[in-house]
């Protein structure tokens, strides 16, 4: 019984940051129709910047709770500075090209960012565990869990509901939905596509960097974190259906629980569990859980 609770808590908290990251990936795909391989790199940059900010804030003798503000500032800084640079300076040149070619463009971006982060932060790992203990411990039954994990779940729910609300209940959200549906039609209705693209990309990167910043206290930030993250996020969006918000949520839960189940029952299967879950879903729903297949007009 207690193992079951542990699996649930672990699975759901893993699913939360994964959902935040995958939501960004799926949003960028929905609007720009680009499957961004470098998404994991933005996650990594978010984690690195967070590590730097937390240490920086600590140098000013600020109260400990400010470290959480440092994490949020890190994510915002990446989204506000790096994202527009990449979208305006690089992606823009390639819009309208074949989707596989666009994947390769982002792959090139991944390679470049990988070396850039190494040049800036070096190859040694960073540890920023300070924020991890901010939320104390929570007892569930006989077990105690770290409060930070529950905070993560809260942030994920907030992000999911916030994005859903923003898309469906605000004017700008409706504009974005129109672009997702058809950029051409939206453009002919007077929507400034270029601005929507920049905005959507910045927002997607904000989520990636936020995922990175929030997990920084739980991991050692070092070269190579980007790869693992982007591969797992792909699994999530492929399970859920590319471009779908509910899909990202359900996909993240499936992946998180599958992984937690493996970790607590048979650890060697940790990596496999994710792909087994993905394979099972794809056998029954080749397009992912929340993707509508539309017959082409002939």
């Amino acid at each position: 019984m207690s193992t079951l609770v542990t699996i649930l808590v672990d699975g759901v908290s893993y699913a939360s940051w994964l959902f935040i990251v995958a939501l960004g990936l799926t949003l960028v795909f929905g609007v720009l129709k680009i499957l961004n391989i470098a998404h994991g790199s933005f996650y990594a940059v978010g984690a690195y910047v967070a590590a730097s900010f937390v240490n920086w804030f600590a140098g000013w003798q600020l109260p400990p709770w400010m470290s959480i503000i440092a994490l949020l500032c890190a994510a915002l800084a990446v989204a506000a500075l790096l994202a527009p640079l990449v979208e305006r300076g690089l992606l823009r040149v390639f819009y309208g090209r074949d989707e596989v070619l666009l994947v390769l463009v982002t792959y090139a971006l991944f390679l470049i960012l990988e070396d850039v982060t190494k040049l800036i932060w070096g190859a040694n790992p960073y540890f920023v565990s300070a924020p991890y203990s901010l939320f104390g411990n929570v007892a569930v039954g006989a077990q105690t869990y770290v409060g930070y994990d529950f905070m993560l779940i809260g942030v994920a729910v907030f992000c999911g509901v916030g994005v859903w609300w923003g898309l469906n209940r605000t004017r700008i959200g409706k504009v974005v939905l129109a672009v997702i549906h058809s950029a051409e039609v939206a453009s002919s209705m007077g929507v400034n596509i270029s601005r929507v693209y920049t905005f959507a990309f910045m927002f997607g990167i904000l989520l990636a960097a936020l995922g990175g910043a929030l997990t920084a206290p739980m991991i050692s930030v070092q070269p190579g974190v980007s790869v693992g993250v982007v591969i797992v996020s792909f699994a999530v969006v492929i399970i859920g259906g590319l471009g779908s918000i509910q899909g990202a949520a359900i996909g993240a839960l499936i992946v998180g629980l599958a992984r937690a189940l493996a970790v607590h029952t048979w650890p060697p299967a940790e990596l496999f569990s994710i792909y087994v879950a993905m394979a099972i879903v794809l056998v029954f729903r080749p397009e992912g859980l929340f993707q509508q297949v539309q017959a082409r007009k002939i």
């Binding site: 040149v93 470049i112 850039v116």
Partner: peptide, 19 residues
């Protein structure tokens, strides 16, 4: 230390000018 970066830039140039 920047071999990946060189490769990335090279790839971008090829996609842009020799698709």
């Amino acid at each position: 230390n920047t071999w990946q970066m060189v490769l990335g830039i090279f790839l971008l140039i090829v996609i842009r000018f020799l698709p």
